[in-house]
Design a protein around this nucleic acid. Structure first.
Lengths: 114, 114
DNA sequence: GTTTTCGATTACGGTTTCCGATATGGAGGG
DNA sequence: CCCTCCATATCGGAAACCGTAATCGAAAAC
């Protein structure tokens, strides 16, 4: 696995999840497979509570075939609130990209050395 | 404060810290002020342990005037290992930017719908 | 028809990280 | 000597993450 600490990757994965959920429904097991394809490991015990938290926060809407019981596959889509959060995340990512990757300084009038 | 959840912001802030530390020494109190200037709040109880963890991981090198005791201001600079991690983070941020902000799909031959 | 396997999610106890308020050390000023 | 300021350290509680194992229902194998 990459040497980049998981706590960075986790945040990036979360943004990915919201991004993918904005385009088509996502499924927990699919996310696990996708991350594995990119060489990452995320266990069910980490991912499903994360999806549940995002649903609890109103960012994702989950639906499954109730006739198949509590462990039927669950599809998550982005809600309006989730879209709003994703839009803000896009701005944050763009700013991070400009500053950290492109090396542009955010114009801050009172920025001084520490 | 922004509506974007702190857990995203935290990861972005960490990247910022490493980025700034790669250019000039950073100080804990300065980071707190800078974040406050952008409307964010991070308390000492969160920041200093974070800086200590980054130092423990070998990403930051801290130095202070030992004559001033254990609570003298401490300047952190990026180590070689920290540079390596930052380089990888830049790649991750660039990829996230391409996919989530620009909307480009990463070319994945076997990518299928969930 | 029964057993086994598979896909997907849930459960659980432990670890790590975050949180905010408060405490602390030393310098500097009155 | 006391007070203020700067900067960091401390602390207990809460939240998030971790990985393994368990569980549910469908499908396949016997």
């Amino acid at each position: 696995m990459s040497d980049v600490e998981r706590e960075f990757l986790l945040a990036f994965w979360k943004v990915h999840i919201l991004h993918h959920a904005s385009r088509e429904p996502v499924v927990g097991a699919w996310i696990i497979r996708e991350l594995a394809r990119h060489g990452y490991t995320v266990s069910p015990g980490s991912l499903y509570p994360l999806l549940a938290r995002m649903e609890a926060r109103g960012w994702l809407a989950g639906r499954s075939d109730a006739a198949l019981g509590p462990k039927a596959r669950k599809e998550y889509t982005l809600t309006d609130e989730g879209h709003r959060v994703l839009d803000q995340l896009r701005e944050q990512v763009a700013e991070l990209y400009r500053e950290v990757v492109l090396g542009e300084d955010t114009p801050a009038p009172e920025e001084v050395s520490p």
